[in-house]
Amino acid sequence: MAESRFVYVTYIRTTPEKLWRALIDPEFTRRYWCETYQVSEWKPGASWKSMIPDGRVADAGEILEIEPNNKLVLTWQNQFIPDLQAEGHSRLTYELEVVGESVKLTLTHEIDRPNSQLIDAVSSGWPHLLASLKSLLETGESLVETRKWPEGM
């Protein structure tokens, strides 16, 4: 295989509007995404970055495609772990689709290289964050382990 890819599909009892907000709004992401928040003008071609609470940049890239409440595609390069940064840009896609009383969220994180360390790393991170996001939207509470940026990281 010439690429590495992580795929995640979850059903969340919410609306596309609420889920969309939770994916990009700092007020939400800080609660389930380890206190990080994203900075972007959220339009095609705009820069995008995800900030660590201490002021460092976690990941950065560019918005490729954006259809509010429906689809978001952006490039993503790690900025704080040299080995991962060296792999260059990956691509993250969120797709939202109403299914009955839920929204089906499909997340695809991919990079054009085999055996990517970045994809390995995010493969263990995303399940926690997305389970926490689901919990936050469905119950109002995120999962405890995703509320704080990990110490020393």
Binding site: R5, V7, V9, T10, T106, T108, A131
Partner: peptide, 23 residues
């Protein structure tokens, strides 16, 4: 929901979805 598929060109690829196992 343990496996999800994606089309890439003419190939249908099968991916493990970690969500149900996590649940």
């Amino acid at each position: 929901n343990l496996v999800v598929t994606l089309w890439r060109g003419r190939e249908k690829l099968h991916y493990l979805n970690p969500v149900p196992i996590h649940d």
